[in-house]
Design a protein around this nucleic acid. Structure first.
Length: 495
RNA sequence: GGGCCGUUAACUCAGUCGGUAGAGUAUCUGCCUUUUAAGCAGAGAGUCGCUGGUUCGAGCCCAGCACGGCCCA
């Protein structure tokens, strides 16, 4: 594919040679910095034809040629930069000798244009071109002007083309940047310190997921790409940074799907002297703030569903949700055989491991029966200890933890808990986890004793939360696939 | 990992019953000084994803593989 030499491409190479023969550099250096098209439209967008006649100024813009319409001795085209697009009118009688250069230009070329503003018969704001020059020659033609680039594979592999021809793609990534900006501002302005912790770790931890393994030659050791920053961020809480957050990449060596990319962006934040219930407030505050910044309101639409992010949001325990949304009889919630049968009735394989606890069965059933139905924002609380190895036990019921997961549009989007800071309990849970691991590659193969040592130094009562940024961006940009919110999603290499 | 669907010109897509490849856009040539999916006339452009099989004959049927999409796990 990379070597295709079609007629069009050959023609363009030929034109490039002809331009060079005329002394025109197809890739010149030192083009004067242009004005931004968006800024011109902001000022003159409302001027009518008469008003524009009073504007004597010449404008100077640069961008890519799209939609070229030639008329022999004249032409119209649009020139598009990062801020907008504007029509340009070219006339042979005005351009003179430059017109022969213009005749060699193509759709897709990047040019600079100088000229004054006027309105056409159809009342479109247009630059009357007095001078034009080449800034960068296009060799490969752009996709068809009406349908654009539809092939999803090509859109992901050649995102640079997708961005040029599909305007809504740029909009999604601008919104992504905006969301990250709002998140960062929210935390820094609330006294959180932004930190960066290791992505290459010698012991994995902080989540259950299969890691990528790499090798450090000089140290002669294997390292894991992190699946979560959690244990390092809590070491910082021990160290006295009482409010920290990290907004960065995690890596999980698992399948690729509409909701999973092997590398993805995670926000984790930890706050000393707060509980998971305080984080419920922060979460509601943060999400409604993002909605307001992006759309000016707290009701958004996702895949045809109206989602109301106005606080407060619904809260219920995992157990309640299984009864209310999963329609499981309360008396049978501890009936292991019944729960296993429920799973097999839906052809879901039983969880891995020798001793399948009630907790794992509950979360498995939850994923099946409840999660898809949680369209409006819902906090699910009181997860069993068995599935929450880093969370503090609930004071009233030591079998469950002070934890919530947040679900919106049928998907998990955040996970938070009051942190387990008792080194005895933590050590015991780690050791049991490793002992029961078997060949489950999602469980860390060894105990992080340095983390236990840190807890022995003493971690204040703390709560922490993780929010999947890609899923957050999907929600706020109405995107069905995670690939639509990651600029270069992982694909098999092109052959 | 399993199921279903897709892969035809640079792009978007047709392709009937198995009979030797089509359109629009883009490109090239000619005409054209207010168009905007400009228009009119003409031309060129294809390893029909790959490999094998069936057949007198395969874009079409069969098998395997590759890549992608969707669903399930």
């Amino acid at each position: 594919m990379a070597d295709t030499h079609t007629k069009v491409i050959k023609d363009r190479w030929q034109k490039l040679k002809e331009l060079e023969a005329q002394g025109i550099d197809p890739y010149p250096n030192g083009i004067a910095r242009p004005e931004r098209i968006g800024a011109i439209i902001d000022v003159y967008g409302e001027y009518d034809g008469d008003a524009l006649q009073g504007v004597k100024e010449e404008f100077y813009v640069a961008g890519r040629i799209t939609g070229l319409r030639r008329f022999g001795k004249a032409a119209f085209f649009h020139i598009k930069d990062d801020t907008g697009r504007i029509q340009v009118h070219v006339r042979k009688d005005i351009l003179g000798g430059r017109f022969s250069l213009f005749k060699k230009l193509d759709i897709g070329d990047i040019v600079w244009v100088r000229g004054s503003l006027f309105r056409t018969k159809t009342d479109e704001l247009t630059i009357a071109c007095s001078d034009i020059g080449l800034a960068s020659k296009n060799i490969r033609p752009l996709p068809e002007k009406y349908h654009g680039l539809r092939d999803k594979e090509l859109r992901y592999r050649q995102r640079y083309v997708d961005l040029i021809v599909n305007d809504e793609v740029k909009d999604i990534f601008r919104k992504r940047a905006k969301i990250i900006q709002v998140v960062r501002h929210y935390f820094t302005s609330n006294g959180f310190l932004e930190v960066e912790t290791p992505m290459m770790q010698s012991i994995v931890g902080g989540a259950t997921a299969r890691p990528f393994i790499t090798h450090h030659n000089a140290l002669g050791i294997d390292l894991y790409l992190r699946i979560a920053p959690e244990l390092y961020l809590k070491r910082l809480i021990v160290g006295g940074f009482e409010r920290v957050f990290e907004l960065n990449r995690n890596f999980r060596n698992e399948g690729i799907s509409l909701q999973h990319n092997p590398e993805f962006t995670m926000l984790e934040f930890y706050e000393a002297y707060s509980t998971y219930e305080d984080l419920i407030d922060r979460t509601e505050e943060l999400f409604s703030l993002i909605a307001k910044e992006l759309y000016g309101k707290t009701v958004i639409t996702y895949q045809g569903e109206e989602i109301d992010l106005t606080p407060p949001w619904r809260r219920l325990t995992l157990k309640q949700s299984l009864i209310e949304n999963g329609h499981i009889d309360e008396e049978r919630l501890f009936d292991r055989e019944f729960l296993l049968k429920c799973l097999s009735d839906h052809s879901v394989p039983a969880p891995k491991g020798d001793e399948i606890g009630i907790g794992k069965l509950w979360t498995r059933l939850f994923d099946l029966l409840v999660e898809p139905r949680l369209i409006q924002p819902t906090f699910i609380t009181h997860y069993p200890v068995e599935v929450s190895p880093l969370a503090r036990r609930n004071a009233e019921d030591p079998d469950v933890t002070d934890r919530f997961e947040l679900f919106i549009a049928g998907r998990e989007i955040a996970n938070a808990f009051s942190e387990l800071n008792d080194p005895r309990d933590q050590k015991k849970r780690f050791e049991e986890q490793v002992a029961k691991r078997g060949d489950d590659e999602e469980i860390p193969p060894e105990v992080d004793y340095d983390y236990i040592r840190a807890l022995e130094i003493g971690m204040p009562p703390t709560a922490g939360e993780g929010i999947g940024i890609d899923r957050l961006v999907m929600l706020f940009t109405d995107s069905a696939s995670i690939r639509d919110v990651i600029l270069f999603p992982q694909l098999r290499p092109e052959r």
